[in-house]
């Protein structure tokens, strides 16, 4: 490795590689701000843009309402991914 070259370490995932069942589909929760991301999602709908149906949107009055506990509760119930947009 050359001097000064930055070594970027890949973050190691704590999850074991497991067989993915055939009937599994990603289950994703999106927390969206009523005034920006939710409106954007609405717009995407109006524009008839296709996007995966696995994303379930939860509307918040503002992403500031988002609480760590909401995210943890989602994972607790076996959700596969969570994203917040605002």
């Amino acid at each position: 490795m050359a001097i000064g070259e930055e070594k970027i370490e890949e973050p190691i995932s704590p999850e074991k590689q497991r067989e993915i069942p055939d009937d599994w589909k990603p289950n994703i929760i999106a927390f969206a701000c009523h005034y920006c991301a939710f409106a954007a999602a609405d717009l995407a709908g109006v524009m008839r843009l296709p996007y995966p149906p696995n994303v379930k949107v939860i509307r918040l009055p503002c992403t500031g309402k988002l609480d760590q506990v909401y995210i943890l509760r989602a994972f607790e119930r076996g959700v596969d991914g969570v994203f917040a947009a605002g």
Binding site: A39, A40, L43, L49, F75, V82, F83, A85
Partner: peptide, 15 residues
């Protein structure tokens, strides 16, 4: 599995 995005109301395609 957790991510945060920033987007405005006009960014339907980005959504």
């Amino acid at each position: 599995r957790l991510e945060f995005f920033n987007l405005s109301a006009a960014q339907g395609p980005r959504w």
